[in-house]
Amino acid sequence: MQTVAAAVTMVRDDAFFLKAWLRHYGEALGRENCYIVNHGRGAEVSELAQGCNLIGIPGDAHKNFDMKRWRLLNNLVHGLRSYYDHVIVGDVDELVVVDPQTGQGLLDYLRDQPIRRVLTPVGLEVIHRIDKEDAPVTDHILGPRRHVRLAPHYSKPCIVSTGTKIARGGHFTQASKLFAPDPLYLLHLKFCDFGNYVTTMNARNAVTAQTGASVQDASIGRHWFAEARGEDRAVFEAFADLSMEKGFDLGWVRKRMHRTWKERGETGYWQFDRPDIARQYVLPERFNGLI
């Protein structure tokens, strides 16, 4: 039984992303080291997550959903740190991967990492280039999908091995030193498949509508609201306009993160600048089948 790393998430009915999360962390860490908060006690989530540690909670819609969610996740991370060296925490559509060129899987990589720190992988959004990629996503996402765009917003401090508080949304912690190892990436899957995007957004818009709150009144991500959604096909067609970069060297991204590292006002949190960078890359073939 390994005590190197555990993974924690919360999910509500997102079977597409949960299957990917379970394939990735279940295989990398063992399902017995995966902790899933089942928001609404969904039967499908319970079925898919057999062998994992499942925590069922009420699913009532609430305008402060995100605030309540991260309060729970923070406390789960604090507790699990007593039993594991590292705890990976994040949304169900966010997966931490290690560059295969290291020759190590996620567990072996983390086994070699010092504790008492927070690791921040570089964030990349897997995008479905609907003008180029016709193959459906089945057992694996990477392969049918090879394009990624830079996403500083998703360079999250999500691998925790020290006592710290994580901000709502998981974007900041109170750890004052930045560790962004070269081989680590956080892949955000929201835009990895056009058909699933439409289905998922319909469901999330329905949840926020039940709260009766506006974007301004709610502690819920703006992207969950229908008024902030935009036209779905236009969102995906716009990926073709992103500047295509050669190679896959993102060392300059990590250098910028370190260069702009600073306190986040008087909140107690720390941050780096997160500008919008309209660039895309093709993932090297070594990533195929990784998730």
Rank of each mutant, 00 (worst) to 15 (best):
L142H: 02
L178N: 14
I220Y: 10
T200S: 14
P152Q: 08
F248W: 05
G170F: 02
T102C: 03
E27W: 07
R41L: 02
P114M: 06
M201V: 01
E245G: 12
K63N: 00
Q50V: 08
Q280N: 05
R111I: 00
V207L: 14
L22N: 08
Q280V: 01
R229H: 15
T211L: 04
S219R: 12
V92C: 07
I115K: 15
C34D: 02
H24G: 02
A61R: 14
P284A: 02
L178D: 12
H258G: 01
D182R: 14
L142K: 05
N288S: 13
V137R: 11
A7H: 09
Y83Q: 11
F172Y: 15
S214Q: 06
Q104W: 06
I130E: 05
P183A: 06
Y25A: 02
V215N: 08
R274G: 07
A135E: 14
R41E: 10
S46C: 06
M244V: 10
T9G: 03
F272S: 04
Y109H: 04
F239W: 05
H258Q: 08
T267A: 04
L72H: 05
Y84F: 15
R81N: 13
T260A: 02
L107S: 11
R264A: 05
R149I: 06
V198I: 15
T138E: 13
R116P: 00
G268V: 00
M244P: 09
A234K: 15
L290P: 01
N64D: 13
K156S: 03
R117P: 01
T164Y: 06
L22H: 12
T211D: 10
L283N: 06
A15T: 12
